[in-house]
Simulated scan of single mutants.
Amino acid sequence: MSRPTLPEASADAGAGADLLRIVRINEEIKSVVGIAFRINIMALNAIFLAKRAGTTALGFGVLSNELRVFSQDLRTGMEALTGLVHACVAEVSRVLQDIRHTGLLRRAVADVERPGPAAVLARREAENAAHSAHLAELRKALQRALEDAFRLVELGSVLAKSAKIEAAYGQSFAGELSQVSGEFAGVVEEIRESLESLRRSAFFNPPREAGRAF
């Protein structure tokens, strides 16, 4: 029984590694969703605190509400990323099947040297190219969604800094408000670090290898 050629084995290993990277990406996204949920709870508590502080914390209350909206928008963005990740899993699985099935067909064609199997191989290779092209598009869509999330986190960072400024006007509540605003800044920074981890992933920055389709 003939064995896979070196390029086939390399491509198979590459697609398998991509699946592992996607699983890690999905775990990182879940982490961001969890942090977004924390921000939502924190924002609700901050809004109640601002109400207790009265007119001196009106600005802080407005910013706390904006941070609550930010957390909801972030969760929506992460849901979009999750959908793209699931689509990538399906497409990488197809690419893995392509590599294995095409390898078998190629060796069969080499053994029998007849036109029938050769035509099947040609169709299979055309399907492979289509799947690889689709996966490349999904990569780009995932990258765009990640950049959108970064822009949203920049907004969250600005809101957290503004809340810290407003906290200083809280008079007798200034200490409590400052502590809350500091917590906001900390969790937004956690999100930034998680997104940076995603950005560094090899799935978002695949090696430029000649002939590699995924």
Rank of each mutant, 00 (worst) to 15 (best):
Phe173Asn: 04
Leu152His: 08
Val69His: 14
Glu125Thr: 02
Gly182Phe: 08
Gly83Met: 05
Asp111Gln: 05
Leu142Ala: 04
Leu105Val: 13
Tyr169Phe: 15
Leu44Cys: 01
Leu19Val: 02
Val23Tyr: 10
Ala136Lys: 00
Leu20Val: 09
Phe173Glu: 02
Glu28His: 13
Arg106Phe: 05
Val180Ala: 12
Glu190Gln: 07
Ala202Phe: 11
Leu96Gln: 00
Leu195Trp: 06
Gln97Thr: 15
Leu177Ala: 03
Gly170Thr: 07
Ala87His: 13
Ala149Pro: 07
Ala174Glu: 14
Leu138Cys: 09
Thr5Cys: 12
Arg212Thr: 08
Arg199His: 15
Val69Asp: 14
Gln97Cys: 12
Leu49Gln: 03
Ser172Met: 07
Ser64Gly: 02
Asp73Ile: 00
Asp73Leu: 09
Phe204Pro: 00
Arg3Phe: 13
Pro117His: 07
Asp111Leu: 05
Ala80Met: 05
Pro206Met: 01
His134Gly: 15
Val188Asn: 00
His131Asn: 09
Ile47Asn: 01
Ile29Ala: 01
Val33Ser: 11
Arg114Gln: 07
Phe37Thr: 15
Arg212Asp: 15
Pro7Phe: 05
Glu8Ile: 13
Leu19Ser: 04
Val120Ala: 07
Arg52Met: 10
Leu49Trp: 06
Ala43Phe: 05
Leu19Cys: 02
Leu81Lys: 02
Thr102Val: 13
Leu63Trp: 03
Val188Trp: 04
Ala185Cys: 09
Pro115Asp: 05
Asn128His: 13
Leu105Asp: 11
Ala50Glu: 06
Met1Val: 08
Ser201Gln: 06
Ala136Tyr: 02
Ile35Phe: 04
Lys164Phe: 12
